[in-house]
Design a binder for these strands. Structure first.
Lengths: 347, 347
DNA sequence: TGGCCGCATGTAATCGATTGCATCGCAAGT
DNA sequence: ACTTGCGATGCAATCGATTACATGCGGCCA
């Protein structure tokens, strides 16, 4: 029955309020430029017609889409999705939409991201990891796309991007020292994926702490991982096959730690009786795992919120003179997956 | 140094190829309408100028944004984020962008979603849960927003929406029967959040299976949950305080199951020795939990992919005559959190 | 009284792509 | 040879909002 009306335009509002579209536009975007009387008439007209802005038209004219693009390596990982949650909330608050681009793979990932800007679909990019290489990132920020960019989670050394991150090397060192303090001397590490900045930072923190304590790290004790449970599980198999096993392992994130523990348990090893394990991230499941995981809590919500704020500030306030570097501090959460080391009775 | 060139427009391409913009537009969107020679010249010109379409301009003219909106209740939950992952992949393949709207709360959530359409930012809506009530949903599909809608995960009975979902009642009944088959007779259930369709369906399946087996369900044995770990943990406390405890529990999802098990373990109860637990979803962690969780695997990737395909087909092919109902079947995954029931030696 | 200023508002160009209609040229049909 | 038809292309309107510039009006000052 209902006639399929088109959505009302600014013309309809103007006609209803008996003013020009220019005045309507002004009344909506800078009310102080319009006299009180007309302002009221226009606001009535908006009400009456049920007007909403056509964002496409505005975008075309203003070259602004009120949308940010979030690039993530893997949205299924709850570490990232929690950050995305915070970003979305903050963006919505400031009137921005959030486009997601997950696992930008293919021949030229930066190109895929860049196209969002060339086609004017997004105003700025929030990148949640550094799996793009520096070259590609730089290309993004150059003409013609010239993407306003904030990199979260990771920092690219010497590069001129705004970054919001946590202090990974320090936190990794802290986690490692926690194991050392408990008497462990043979400590291994399951790394993040190759080519990832986080991998470097956490590994570096680990190595530094070991070094400072005067402890050796055998090459065997560095297990390759990729932040996913399966890789932790694979590390467990490797671990079990070793002759001279570490008595503790610092995993680059909670998921890896969980996979690792699960692999060990299958073969009858128990944590923390037989081995101590520290994770990283403090996912929700860390608290509820068996054993509850000792881990490093990253302020993920804060991180996402700050990253979004930073990006939107840049978009609205123009270009910052020099790249901002915001570093949040993580917090060590000690639970039951780590315990004091007691040397086995020697034969 | 570099001059801040504007991004090239279709005018630039036209000038370069010495044709009109109309021809360029046609060459790009329906090449067969343009002669081979000019087509080649234009494609060279595109190459040379580095042209990319201005999506805002196209949106304005065509009243189409090539963007879909995904509404989710909680993106942090890896159940949803996995589906979103699949959606995003499928959408990208078909040239669509994905806007996310997480936890649409506030006074009028449907309004917030609807505004994306009124402002022409999205062409269609993919709703990943049914926490909106029917009234609000109906309002969305009416003029003036008239949103093409596909509801995933949940089905609203008697309503005329396209839906893609899994067979929850059946899967829930299946999970329950698995416990019954193992000799359990006193079986409890931790529900989903109030007002959620999934809660109803899984509860219904559970009740039906119990009923068919001639088993009673005490009111105490239905624990209120909300799909989050904390609620499972809370259920554990409730469970522990009970006199006549069930010997098995079917949790409405894996997260709840995990929280529940973690609460029990704190008090020294062990699974599956003291209790059998079945989850739902088969999250990655289910396999790596201790004990590995018996659960119901929902084809999440498939679900996301189908939902996205369905929506995009509708967007591109016009309106379907009658609402599509796609029901995927889930699969029971039996691991170690369930075991044969042995009655305790009676005193 | 005349000139000037500034506020409120209108007029019309503009953003970039699409598309209905017009035009042109060439080939085929009678 | 003249018309008809069709394929290829151009012209110009259009989508809806913004905004530079123009206009008109009232008040203020000299």
């Amino acid at each position: 029955m209902s006639i399929a009306r088109k959505t009302p335009t600014i013309q309809d509002v103007a006609r209803f309020a008996r003013v020009s579209t220019a005045t309507v536009s002004r009344a909506l975007s800078s009310p102080e430029r319009v006299s009180e009387g007309t302002r009221a008439r226009i606001s009535d007209a908006v009400e009456a017609t049920g007007y909403t802005l056509n964002q496409a038209a505005r975008s075309l004219r203003q070259r602004t889409s009120k949308t940010i693009l979030v690039g993530l390596p893997d949205i299924r990982n709850s570490f990232f999705s929690t950050i995305l949650d915070a970003i979305e909330r903050e963006a919505a608050l400031r009137g921005y939409g959030v486009l997601v681009c997950n696992r930008y793979s293919g021949p030229n990932p930066a190109r895929r991201l860049g196209e969002y800007f060339l086609s004017h679909r997004a105003d700025g990019l929030l990148l949640l990891d550094g799996s793009l290489d520096l070259e590609q990132l730089l290309e993004l920020t150059r003409e013609p796309s010239a993407v306003p960019l904030v990199v979260a989670c990771e920092e690219i050394p010497d590069a001129s991007f705004h970054t919001v991150k946590t202090d990974n090397p320090r936190a990794a060192a802290h986690a490692t020292r926690h194991l050392i303090d408990q008497g462990h001397t043979r400590i291994g590490h399951i790394t993040g994926p190759a080519g990832n900045v986080l991998r470097q930072e956490r590994l570096a923190g680990f190595m530094q702490a070991m070094d400072e304590a005067g402890l050796k790290v055998l090459p065997d004790w560095i297990f390759p991982g990729n932040f996913m449970m399966e890789s932790g599980y694979a590390a467990a198999l490797q671990y079990l096959a070793m002759a001279n096993r570490p008595s503790a392992v610092f995993a680059a994130n909670d998921e890896t730690a969980i996979g690792f523990l699960s692999g060990l348990r299958e073969q009858g090893l128990e944590c923390p009786r037989d081995i101590s394990v520290v994770g990283f991230d403090d996912l929700a499941v860390a608290l509820h795992y068996s054993p509850p995981l000792t881990t490093v809590r990253q302020p993920r919500e804060k991180l996402g919120q700050l990253a979004a704020q930073t990006l939107i500030n840049i978009l609205e306030g123009g270009v910052e003179a020099k790249p901002l570097r915001i570093v949040l501090t993580s917090e060590m959460i000690i639970r039951s997956s780590t315990a004091r080391y007691f040397p086995p009775p020697h034969s």
